[in-house]
Lab assay of single mutants.
Amino acid sequence: MDVCVRLALWLLWGLLLHQGQSLSHSHSEKATGTSSGANSEESTAAEFCRIDKPLCHSEDEKLSFEAVRNIHKLMDDDANGDVDVEESDEFLREDLNYHDPTVKHSTFHGEDKLISVEDLWKAWKSSEVYNWTVDEVVQWLITYVELPQYEETFRKLQLSGHAMPRLAVTNTTMTGTVLKMTDRSHRQKLQLKALDTVLFGPPLLTRHNHLKDFMLVVSIVIGVGGCWFAYIQNRYSKEHMKKMMKDLEGLHRAEQSLHDLQERLHKAQEEHRTVEVEKVHLEKKLRDEINLAKQEAQRLKELREGTENERSRQKYAEEELEQVREALRKAEKELESHSSWYAPEALQKWLQLTHEVEVQYYNIKKQNAEKQLLVAKEGAEKIKKKRNTLFGTFHVAHSSSLDDVDHKILTAKQALSEVTAALRERLHRWQQIEILCGFQIVNNPGIHSLVAALNIDPSWMGSTRPNPAHFIMTDDVDDMDEEIVSPLSMQSPSLQSSVRQRLTEPQHGLGS
């Protein structure tokens, strides 16, 4: 029994001894940790006062410096006190997940390849973020970090730009207890964004957000305005092209109309020559008939004078003969009235020469109109080809070629109108001259024959008349068809009918 009691006491004593040793060891460790923490804080404070003595007594600045020092320690893998190029590049790629850190790398180092804690602190103090207000930090939280649900907490804590380094380091107390961020992804996102802002300055999105919006609005307005302008120009170009094509079609119709007119003019001239020949034959025939009538009257007179026994018949025959003579005298007077005045042959040749010289100047004017028309046609064809290209319509709308071609078409039409008026006036004037003179002027042997017949020096006439060419005029020349008939041919039928009527009546009387 005593043995059992003793054994229990030994065990209890051993447990108490072991517990005492454990408590003693724990207290010694706590004392050691407290001592090392105090030494670390003293070291940080001493270093901060050495680097930035004016701010070393500010608790907030001291906390920010400690956060900057921890960031530098995080980047300094070899713990030599300086962050070199390789260490910063590795940190950007692995910790901040930048696949192309060239720009960030140059911004961080600049011309200094080794970055110490002092360099990093001075860079942070010179950053724009260091002077941010609470509102600017909240704006950064909303737009860049995209965590607007913590806006009220940031405003309540009055977190300005000075506190940004403390957000950039992993601090459970700061993010969990103070900021009350329960979501781990939110804490990590805030820490990475803050670290990027401390090292490289304010984000471009935050700094140029309004400018970007303004430029976007301006670009949209310019784009819409450009599209509207292109649409208006395209519609104007199509309308202008439609008008130009309509004018061009009018020129083609006028060309065909003048071609038909020239054919009718040539045909009328041929008919005029035929009528002139018929007139000469008719006059000769009338003279022959008059002579035959005179001979017949003389023969009847002689027969009736030789027959004294038939006085009654003779008297009747003499009366008939007197009627025939009276008819012959009237026919002769009618014929003489139409051919009583004949212009000198020299006057006819001079008038024919005048007509040919006028035709020369008319042909020159006509050729100029043809050239203008050809230029207008070529310009229209070029515009047609340009319209078939990809940007042809837009190019035509913004060039002056369309207006130039339109002006050329209008100029050609005006020139053709002048040529039309000149042709109309010339035909009418020479027709009236032919009526008054009674001989042909338009139809003549040609300028060379006339110059030779009148003994004129050929050098006075200049160049010879160009051959009539096919040219274009407007449709108002169609009503000239009825005026192209020679006035002499219009007189011939009346002359034929009057003479024939007077010759036929006596012959019928003789026949009876």
Rank of each mutant, 00 (worst) to 15 (best):
L63M: 12
L63F: 05
L63T: 13
L63K: 10
L63W: 14
L63I: 07
S64F: 08
S64A: 15
S64R: 08
S64E: 14
S64P: 13
F65I: 09
F65N: 13
F65W: 13
F65M: 14
F65E: 11
E66F: 10
E66H: 13
E66G: 04
E66T: 12
E66C: 11
A67P: 03
A67M: 12
A67I: 10
A67C: 11
A67W: 13
A67H: 11
A67Q: 05
V68P: 12
V68M: 09
V68T: 13
V68E: 09
R69H: 03
R69I: 07
R69L: 03
N70P: 13
N70A: 12
N70I: 01
N70R: 15
N70M: 13
N70G: 15
I71W: 12
I71T: 01
I71L: 11
I71V: 02
I71D: 12
H72V: 08
H72F: 08
H72P: 05
H72K: 06
H72L: 01
K73L: 04
K73M: 09
K73A: 09
K73S: 06
K73P: 05
L74S: 12
L74Y: 10
L74K: 07
L74C: 12
L74A: 10
M75K: 00
M75Y: 11
D76P: 11
D76Q: 13
D76H: 03
D77N: 01
D77T: 06
D77S: 03
D78C: 11
D78M: 12
D78R: 15
D78Q: 14
D78E: 08
D78I: 15
D78G: 10
D78L: 14
A79R: 03
A79T: 01
A79S: 00
A79C: 04
N80W: 09
N80R: 07
N80P: 11
N80M: 07
G81Q: 15
G81D: 08
G81W: 14
G81A: 11
G81R: 08
G81C: 05
D82V: 08
D82L: 14
D82W: 14
D82M: 12
D82Q: 12
D82G: 09
V83E: 04
D84A: 06
D84V: 03
D84N: 03
D84P: 13
D84H: 09
V85W: 04
V85I: 11
V85M: 05
V85P: 07
V85A: 01
V85C: 08
V85D: 07
E86R: 06
E86T: 13
E86F: 04
E87Y: 04
E87W: 10
E87I: 05
E87R: 07
E87A: 01
S88M: 02
S88T: 01
S88A: 00
S88N: 01
S88K: 02
S88L: 00
S88C: 02
S88V: 01
D89Y: 00
D89S: 00
D89T: 02
D89R: 00
D89L: 00
E90A: 02
E90S: 02
F91G: 14
F91K: 12
F91W: 14
F91N: 12
L92I: 14
L92S: 15
L92Y: 15
L92Q: 10
R93N: 11
R93K: 07
R93W: 07
E94S: 14
E94C: 12
E94V: 05
E94Y: 13
E94F: 14
D95L: 09
D95Y: 03
D95Q: 04
D95P: 11
D95W: 10
D95S: 07
L96V: 07
L96A: 13
L96E: 09
L96S: 08
L96P: 03
N97F: 00
N97L: 02
N97S: 01
N97E: 04
N97P: 11
Y98G: 03
Y98K: 04
Y98F: 00
Y98A: 02
Y98N: 00
